[in-house]
């Protein structure tokens, strides 16, 4: 068997500017994830609320444009029942994403991102390239956000555009800009803290399995703690200990203009921002180009 000597060769490609280097990691990670058939299955399952709301918007639009082709009574009933507003987006779309779908997606995509690199000592290979710790963290974050924001932001905006198209009035854009902004804000509120948290947990362990279980177990335990404290004390304020409840609180405040629980939405914002900041701090501390063996 011939042995080919692979000596040093100068890099012949184009170097990305330092600000865009994280994108190389994101692109490679997304491409790798999309090669797995389970990623497609998970994303498809996560898109069920999108499909349901899409059909609802279509029915509403059809009822509005019915004119003489549809029984007027049926059209009127459909218009009354199928109201497309922030509440509908919450009940049919973001409610599921905040409580289950997005944590599941970020777990699936993000649990092994850093844990596997640590297990296989790939960090040293990463940092032998011209990338910094920041590029690595943002590159990995980009992978999780791509999938998380696809099922929230991209699908939400598509639904909004479809809704506006079905309305057929350009003036409706001005009337409903707050719904659009709500969709963008809710998508970020639901996705960013989860993505940062899963990466932080992933940086602590060398097993994707443990990272995933820690992340999801913590989310579910805090939800159970909120429920128990509510049950025993009879006050809804203790829901603030639940990650899911905080995301729900902010989303209902934005989309329905009323909070879901008996505590100020500022508390939820502080909790989610706190989780994000702590996660980034943990990532910054845990990601090291060289492992120091004590």
């Amino acid at each position: 068997m011939p042995i080919f000597d692979q000596g040093f060769r100068a890099f012949e490609g184009t170097l990305a500017p330092p600000t865009h280097r994280f994108w190389t990691i994101t692109k490679a990670g997304v491409r790798l994830a999309m090669k797995k058939k389970w990623t497609w299955v998970v994303v498809l399952l996560a898109s069920i609320p999108f499909l349901v709301l899409l059909v609802t918007i279509y029915l509403r639009g059809t009822a509005e444009q019915a004119g003489n082709t549809l029984d007027q009574r049926i059209a009127a009933t459909a218009r009354d029942v199928l109201v497309i507003n922030g509440e509908r987006f919450w009940l049919f779309f973001f409610q599921f994403h905040a409580g289950f779908i997005v944590p599941m997606i970020v777990l699936f995509v993000g649990a092994g991102l850093i844990a596997n690199d640590r297990r296989t000592n790939a960090l040293e290979i990463y940092f032998s390239r011209p990338i910094t710790k920041r590029d690595y963290i943002f590159g990995k974050l980009g992978i999780v956000l791509t999938f998380g924001l696809f099922v929230t932001l991209v699908e939400g905006v598509l639904l909004y555009v479809f809704h506006v198209t079905m309305k057929g009035e350009i003036s409706y854009l001005a009337e409903s800009y707050d719904l659009f902004l709500g969709i963008v804000a809710c998508s970020l509120i639901i996705t960013v803290p989860s993505a940062a948290a899963i990466l932080a947990i992933s940086s602590f362990v060398k097993s994707a399995r443990f990272a995933g279980l820690t992340f999801f177990g913590t989310i579910m335990l805090t939800a159970a703690a909120g429920e128990i404290l509510h049950g025993v004390t009879g006050t809804k304020q203790f829901w603030a200990v639940s990650y899911i409840a905080n995301a729900q609180q902010l989303c209902t405040q934005i989309l329905l203009d009323k909070p879901q629980f008996d505590f100020p939405w500022g508390v939820s914002l502080a909790v989610l921002v706190g989780i994000t900041i702590v996660s980034f701090a943990v990532l910054w501390r845990r990601i090291r180009p060289v492992e120091i063996v004590s």
């Binding site: 335990l221 429920e227 049950g231 004390t233």
Partner: peptide
């Protein structure tokens, strides 16, 4: 200030069994 009626040991332990153990920890 947890109301006495809600804070009996029985109530709490059943609550914890159902909400924390049966729903989350045992399956987990």
């Amino acid at each position: 200030n947890v109301p006495r009626a809600l804070a009996s040991s029985d109530e709490m332990i059943v609550n914890l069994s159902l909400m924390a153990y049966a729903q989350v920890l045992v399956p987990f």
